[in-house]
């Protein structure tokens, strides 16, 4: 049996063991350690008694409070929707015009629409709905599929080129890759199309523009319209409003004509409730009316 020695600084005995110069004091465990061990153990026992805690084979101890997390969530959700019932029923039931005329309801639309848009739409269309390369600007530009509340609501419901059975379908052919137009014709039509929007660049040669217009009328006007103002039936963008989904540079427009375009927007039916979709429509319409 090793014999301890007294440590001069603390006055405690050592255990008498030594490892490579390290000794240990035989200090008793401080009382608070036992106290807190007991206190936390007591807390645990009480908690076990009150809450679901220990497995009993195929079941578990349910706890005296009878609390179940799934039930709690269901109750909270029910209470929350009851809280919202005062306005959800009105927004679901009333017409777009009536809601937009009601400042109280529109305050709720602005609040709720902000989070709905931020969490579901902003990833592509941007937090301020201003779009980005490949994604339409919803705050200002002309609508691809129509700007009536009903049209916007339908676009959100079924999406564009999506997996939804009623999806809106739109495809611009690849005029270059599929050898519908040769390179020179494409350059002409690109020059013409770019001249439809104010660009600040010097206008192209009049002869080129005239040739481009001819190519346009033969190949593009069926969807984009003779004036190039687009057609909401096919989701064909307005080429005259100065807003470009895929960019308005010579290079970008050339690539669009050469390789075609086929945008994609998911269908939100099944992911957002009819109420949420309606609020998004209202939110967007409101956004445009206040921005402009």
């Amino acid at each position: 049996m090793a014999v301890g020695e007294r440590d001069a600084h603390t006055g405690h005995m050592t255990t008498g063991h030594e490892w490579n110069g390290i000794k240990e004091l035989n200090t008793p465990v401080p009382k608070p350690v036992y106290f807190f061990l007991a206190a936390t153990a007591l807390f645990s026992v009480v908690y076990w008694l009150l809450m679901p805690a220990w497995p009993t084979g195929s079941s578990y101890t349910k706890g005296l409070l009878g609390i179940d997390q799934r039930q709690t969530v269901a109750e909270k959700l029910a209470a929350a929707s009851l809280d919202r019932a005062s306005w959800t029923a009105r927004i679901a039931g009333e017409s777009f015009e009536a809601i937009r005329a009601d400042p109280q309801l529109m305050t709720i639309v602005r609040e709720t629409g902000h989070t709905l848009f931020g969490d579901n739409c902003a990833a592509c269309h941007g937090a301020k709905a201003a779009g980005g390369p490949g994604y339409p600007n919803l705050a200002e530009a002309s609508w691809l599929w129509g700007g009536s509340p009903e049209a916007i609501e339908e676009t959100i419901r079924v999406g564009i080129n999506s997996a939804h059975p009623d999806t809106r379908v739109s495809q611009m052919p690849a005029f270059g890759r599929d050898q519908i137009l040769d390179r020179d014709r494409i350059l002409e039509v690109v020059a013409y199309v770019r001249s439809l929007s104010p660009s600040g660049e010097p206008a192209a040669d009049a002869g080129v523009l005239a040739a481009g217009r001819q190519v346009f009328l033969e190949n593009c006007a069926s969807c984009h319209g003779e004036s190039g103002a687009g057609n909401t039936e096919f989701g064909a963008p307005d080429l005259t409003d100065g807003s470009w989904i895929h960019g308005g540079s010579l290079d970008a427009v050339f690539r669009a004509v050469y390789g075609g375009q086929q945008g994609l927007m998911p269908a939100w039916e099944g992911r957002l409730s009819p109420l949420d979709r309606k609020m998004l429509v209202l939110y967007l319409l409101d956004l445009r009316s206040t921005e402009n």
Partner: peptide, 12 residues
């Protein structure tokens, strides 16, 4: 260069 404060506490 000090001994461990408490061997018993180490065990606990």
């Amino acid at each position: 260069d000090r001994p461990i404060f408490s061997y018993r506490l180490s065990i606990i």
